[in-house]
Design a protein around this nucleic acid. Structure first.
Lengths: 356, 356
DNA sequence: AGCTATGATGTGTGCGCACACAATTTTACT
DNA sequence: AGTAAAATTGTGTGCGCACACATCATAGCT
C-alpha cells in the first residue's frame, strides 16, 4: 500500500552508524570521520533518500518572514486587490509559521521605491515578493538579493534580466491583441477610429503598457490594415484640465468608435467620463474587475474587461515562495496566467467564485 | 514565534480538561460527559481552532481511499479531461496517503452505471466523487452512501435532491446566455436564424442541456425579441444517415447565421462538418478546449468556446473530499466555476497555464 | 600515568496530533 | 455499605526529522 519510505533511521542501520552521524552527513555540518562519511555516502548513493517534508517542518517549528514589496494599496484599487491576495496567502500559511510583511511604496514616486526596497533588504527576510514597476530602480536590488541568497519572486511586471525564482503575470502583448479582437468584434463590421488610452503613466519607465498597445495595433495590422485608424492618447492625471480637454476633443470626432484603456484604474475613470457625457455608444474595453468597473459594466458603459487577476498573481507569488522555503520545491520560472474575458453575461460567475 | 498557534493542549487548558477529552470532542467519538462537552465546546466556539495538518498526517499515517464514479474517458475527450483532473489531484495528495480508484461506466448505457455504482459501494471507500449524468439511476445510491456515512461530491451535473457534501459545476442557464451574447456579438448587427444543436443526447434524462438552451433563448428574448429566430435541432449520432441530412437542410437555409452546440464533443463534430462543407462563414460557438476544438478554433471554424473546465471540476471534487477527510473542512455546498470565454486571441494563454 | 582538549559518535527530546490504554470517577445493584 | 460494571477522564507513545546534549575515543600534554 504505502511504499515504505526510507527514513534516516534506515540509512543509519544500513551504514552501521547512528542517526546523528547520518544527520551530520546529510546537512554536511562536519564532525564526521572519513570512515563514517564514506560508509554513509555509499549508502546514500545506492538508495534514493527523500526526506519526509511533513516531519521536517513539524519538527523545525521555524518561522519564515516574507517581505512583500508592492505599491501602496490605497493609491489604486488594483493594488488593493493585489494586497488582498497576499493577505489570503498569508492566512493560509500562518499556521506553518509563515508571516508576510508588506512594504508599500508610492506608485508614482520612484524614490520611495528605492527607499522602501532598502528597508526590505535591511529587514533580512527569508523571501521577497516584488512588483517591480520601476525598471531601472529595481535592478540593483535584485543583485543584492542574490548576493544575500534571498529568493525573490516577481509579479505583474516582468524584468527579464531580473533572474527571479519565478515570475507570475500575463502575456501583455497578447493581452493587447485580445483587447483588439474584442474591440473588432464589437464594431459590427463598421470601420472607424479606435483609440488606445493611457492615463497618468510614465511610459518611458513602464514597458508593460507599451506592450499592450503594440499587441492592440498589431492585431489590426494583421486583420484589417486599412479599415481602422488607431490613435494613442497619453493622458495626464484627471485633475489636470488638459485631461478633459483632450478627451472631449477625441470623442467629439464622430468617427471614433471605441476606446481601449491600458490599466484598470484608468478604465474606471474613462467609464465615468463617458457616462457623464452620455457617450455609452462608444465601445469601451479595459482591465480588471474593480468594483467601479463592475458597476459600469452592469450599466452597459464598459463592454469587456480583461481580467489580470491581481489577487491571484500575488497569491501565487507568496505560495511559490513558501513552497521554496518549506518544501524546497522549485516553482515554474514563468507562470503566465490566462487572459480572462469578462462580459456582462459571465461577470456574475466570476464574482461568485473565489480565488481558487 | 510571534503568532502562537492554538494547539489541542491549549484548548484543554482553557477548558480545564485533558487533551484526551478535547480530542474526543473534536472527533466526536463520544465518551464525554455533558459537563466536559459543554466546557470544551464553549472554548471551541470562542477561538478558531485550526488543526496542524502537518502534525496530523505525520502521526496518523493512515491511508484514505476515494472512489471516482465517472464515465469512461475513452468514450469522450471531455471525460478524459475530467479523468486527468482526478489523476492530478491524486498525485498531489499521494504523499498524504490518499489514493483514488476510478470506476468507469458507459456514457451511453444506464445499466452499466448501476452496475458500476454497486461495485463502488461494495468497495467501501472513504469518499466518493460522482458525475451523476443519469438522473434516475443515481438517486438510490445517494441514499445508500448517506446511510453508510460515506461523504460524496457531485460534479458536472447537479442533482438537487442528492444532498451531496458539495457540488462543483457551472451555472448552465447563464452558460447558455453567455453563448447567446457571444453569438449576438458575432452577428455584426445583422438578423437571421440561429440554431441550437444537441447531438446524440437523451434530453429526457439530462436536464442540463435544456438549461443551456433556455439561457440561450431567453437572452435573445430579452435583447431583441424579433430580430432572431432560434431553432433547435436534436440530432442523432453522426453515424446515422439522418444526421447529415438534417444538418445539410439546416445550413442550406441561407438565413441561418450561427450554430450554438451544447456539448464539447458535438462541437468538434459540427466543426468538422462545417469545414467539410466549406461553411466557415457560419458562426460556431461551442464548449471546451478539446484538442479537436482547439484545432478548429485556430483554423477559424469555431468562433468561441465556453470552457467548462472539466479537469478543474474533477480536481476540485477530489480536493474537497480530501479536505473533508483529512482536514475535516466543509467545502462549499455549491461551487460554481466561472464561465470562461475562449477566443482565438486568448486560447494560447489558457493552454500554457496549468490547472491552478 | 594521569589529565585534558579535541574530535567523533550516539542518545534524547520536542514539534502537534491521534489513538491505545491506564487511571479514575460514577453508577448500578446486591 | 460494598463491590462490580460502566462511564468518564487522563497519560503515554509513535510518526520522521532536527538539533541539543551526553558519551565515548583518541591524541597531546605535563
Amino acid at each position: 500500500m504505502n511504499t515504505k519510505n526510507i527514513r534516516i533511521k534506515d540509512i543509519a542501520q544500513l551504514a552501521g552508524v547512528s542517526v546523528g552521524t547520518v544527520d551530520r552527513v546529510l546537512h554536511n555540518r562536519g564532525r564526521v570521520s572519513e570512515d563514517a562519511l564514506k560508509k554513509v555516502l555509499s549508502v546514500l548513493d545506492q538508495i534514493d533518500y527523500k526526506p519526509n517534508l511533513i516531519a521536517r517542518t513539524l519538527g523545525a517549528n521555524k518561522t519564515y518572514r516574507i517581505a512583500a514589496l508592492v505599491p501602496n494599496p490605497d493609491q489604486d484599487p488594483y493594488w488593493a486587490s493585489s494586497k488582498s491576495g497576499i493577505s489570503q496567502a498569508e492566512a493560509e500559511w500562518l499556521r506553518y509559521g509563515v508571516t508576510v510583511q508588506p512594504f508599500f511604496f508610492n506608485l508614482y514616486d520612484k524614490n520611495t521605491f528605492t527607499e522602501v526596497a532598502r528597508r526590505v533588504t535591511d529587514s533580512e527576510p527569508d523571501g521577497i515578493l516584488v512588483a517591480p514597476i520601476f525598471y531601472h530602480e529595481t535592478l540593483p536590488f535584485f543583485e543584492e538579493f542574490r548576493e544575500r541568497g534571498i529568493p525573490y519572486v516577481l509579479f505583474n511586471t516582468n524584468i527579464h534580466e531580473g533572474q527571479p525564482l519565478s515570475f507570475i503575470g500575463q502575456d501583455l502583448y497578447q493581452s493587447g491583441r485580445l483587447g483588439a479582437e474584442l474591440m473588432h468584434l464589437s464594431q459590427n463590421g463598421q470601420a472607424g477610429i479606435l483609440a488606445v488610452l493611457h492615463v497618468n503613466e510614465d511610459l518611458g519607465n513602464s514597458v508593460h503598457l507599451a506592450e499592450k498597445e503594440k499587441g492592440f495595433r498589431e492585431y489590426f495590422d494583421d486583420k484589417n490594415p486599412n479599415a481602422f485608424e488607431i490613435r494613442t492618447l497619453n493622458l495626464t492625471s484627471p485633475n489636470n484640465p488638459a485631461f478633459e480637454k483632450e478627451l472631449l476633443e477625441l470623442i467629439g470626432n464622430n468617427k471614433v468608435r471605441g476606446l481601449f484603456i491600458s490599466t484598470s484604474k484608468a478604465t474606471a475613470i474613462i467609464a465615468a467620463f463617458l457616462e457623464k457625457h452620455r457617450r455609452t455608444d462608444l465601445k469601451l474595453i479595459g482591465y480588471d474587475m474593480l468594483e467601479e468597473n463592475i458597476f459600469y459594466m452592469k450599466k452597459g458603459v464598459i463592454d469587456f474587461l480583461i481580467n489580470q487577476n491581481p489577487k491571484r498573481q500575488a497569491f501565487l507569488g507568496i505560495n511559490h515562495l513558501v513552497g521554496q522555503l518549506i518544501l524546497h520545491k522549485n516553482p515554474p520560472a514563468n507562470e503566465l496566467l490566462p487572459l480572462e474575458i469578462i462580459s456582462r453575461e459571465n461577470l456574475a460567475s466570476y464574482l461568485s467564485s473565489g480565488i481558487h
